[in-house]
Design a protein around this nucleic acid. Sequence first.
DNA 1: TATGAATGAGCCTTCATTCAT
DNA 2: CATGAATGAAGGCTCATTCAT
Lengths: 200, 200, 200, 200
Amino acid sequence: MASQPPTRPALRERYERRRQEVLATAARVFAERGYQATSMADLTEATGLTAGGLYHYIGSKEQLLFGICDDLMAPLLEQARPIAGGDGPPQERLRALLRTWLRHVAAHRDHLLVFAQERHVIEREPQWRAVRRQRREFEALLDDVLAEGERTGAMRFADRRLALLALLGMVNHTAQWFRPRGRLSAEQIADGYCDLLLRG
Amino acid sequence: MASQPPTRPALRERYERRRQEVLATAARVFAERGYQATSMADLTEATGLTAGGLYHYIGSKEQLLFGICDDLMAPLLEQARPIAGGDGPPQERLRALLRTWLRHVAAHRDHLLVFAQERHVIEREPQWRAVRRQRREFEALLDDVLAEGERTGAMRFADRRLALLALLGMVNHTAQWFRPRGRLSAEQIADGYCDLLLRG
Amino acid sequence: MASQPPTRPALRERYERRRQEVLATAARVFAERGYQATSMADLTEATGLTAGGLYHYIGSKEQLLFGICDDLMAPLLEQARPIAGGDGPPQERLRALLRTWLRHVAAHRDHLLVFAQERHVIEREPQWRAVRRQRREFEALLDDVLAEGERTGAMRFADRRLALLALLGMVNHTAQWFRPRGRLSAEQIADGYCDLLLRG
Amino acid sequence: MASQPPTRPALRERYERRRQEVLATAARVFAERGYQATSMADLTEATGLTAGGLYHYIGSKEQLLFGICDDLMAPLLEQARPIAGGDGPPQERLRALLRTWLRHVAAHRDHLLVFAQERHVIEREPQWRAVRRQRREFEALLDDVLAEGERTGAMRFADRRLALLALLGMVNHTAQWFRPRGRLSAEQIADGYCDLLLRG
DNA sequence: TATGAATGAGCCTTCATTCAT
DNA sequence: CATGAATGAAGGCTCATTCAT
């Protein structure tokens, strides 16, 4: 009755699997029509669930958005932390970071498009603090690598802050145009961006 | 029965002035809260007009969005065409283009944020063809300069298409973080991006 | 397919005990939040049962309300009938009736508050006829004692009907303010009301 | 657009008149079916307004309830204050107070029934403080008169607090059974209650 | 001309209840 | 027996827009 996730392992697993499906479907619809412009009726149609069933998995439309953002940021951070904190040469860490990042962006285009669309909400409303913190942590990981590269002399930036912002801009924008079977793979794009930043 | 703009010159001028004010105010509110999440009531409050008065100037909420996009793209194209089509060295034309572009972005941050937020609508709906065409024309102007630079040997790109997309990403993203009295001026940012693209 | 109460004595007894607990808990929650404003989910939380378990004991939300009303009226009538029908002096019977009544009200405040709150339903809907009959029987018991007191000259009323209605009003209202460890006991309140009605 | 009451006098007056009609109609429907059990659709049907039109006048369902409570309490207090604060003999002030009170109850039965039904909300929720204060002020006016009667020896109570509570109970309960063309007028009922309280 | 009352479809969400497991 | 996922109608409310005044 109350929409608590189940506690028994078998049910719990099925619940999580279905919840992931719902999140992915919702991310796709939101990316196409916009979060605000998508009605819960649109989502019941897209998921095949009924209104009540949908709420069983998501809690609310806003929690659904939160789930999408978390599915985007949490695994990315999980992968990025060990790479950024590794002890190889900074340029190699940056390249590895970019490849991982762009693979993630390519696999979660919809999530990132939704995230970008609702950025004004995420950056302003108190209840989105956790997501803001994830975003900032990721940017800090990037900046740490750039800073270490600069310190060791392996990289040189006219303005490191501007380089970081440019990088964020180009990668986030990639979600707008990337196509899975397109001319460029995620890794090729990553290397392209990396070269833009470091060459010279 | 949509109100028609007045035809007598004096009235016409006042009408246009006020309309611009309304567009700018609306762009600000949309940038903050989102286009869909902003109600016409929010706009009457922000503009100080009444519902009827607001409609006198804008026609509809969608036409208001259209007006914002046009205020963003039309003057930019106006300025960009002669620069891109000039006959100086391609690098100098690119630099000039970027400076003009970033000055425009800096002066129309709200417009660009709204444009980016509603991009999924603009790219998909038939009634937005005119705006899509503006966007594509601007990108073509940029690409022309890059292509000529490549042809003359003045520029070299591992992948010119990727360079263009990266450039679009970083410039558009600038609207998210640029502050008028910040550390970097629009021109400095433009030069920074230009160097990223061309150096080496 | 409503669950049937068990028929084997031992199970039956446990079932009844739990059912009484559920009724009392529900009465408390209803008294606090209102019958309509309380969801079945609120009740599963308050009782610690699951949705299915709750329905095992109550049948439906309306039958639960019926049970609360019956737990209020049936034992009261059971006690009141012999007192009202006794053969002592009417004043003494009235006093005894009031003491019993107020003890019952004090012990079932929640039940009475719910009863009063949903009175408009109970008085109007066909399925509540049995409860209406209980209420009317109790009022008739009271009126009989007053009538006999008037006939024997032991009591005198400017308007007996008004006196009865006033009595009903004050006693029912008692559920709103009575506190178990308050300054006045149920018996003291009963005597106070009795004196108001009879003195002079 | 925004549901602000109009400011121009002529419109303001019409608005207020209609608003009163809506409140009275809503009070009647709430008294019959219960506040919670009445849907806004029920109210649009009863008022003849559309959903939006209804909200133009009431703000929200809860503000509608607030308006009903205020229409009940504010004029009653307005009338009661000068009577309670007068300088005649306390018994006469009490009688006048009761007559005024019962005339008001008779004219606002629906309002009082709704007030009583939702009492648990009014007494518990922070946003109902203003109404609670009105209720308490009225009870204090009554108690002041009783206290002065007791002090001057004009009245004698076994327990003044209990007498006050009994009075509140009987008067409030009157809304349950009073009929405009019934056997007893509001004044006769008032005098009957007054005699119950003071005689002997 | 400018106003603001009115529209009514559509929004997100909750609910009492059922039934396969 | 007990569970909790699922139902889907109905809930209160908002919205962009119009038009009589």
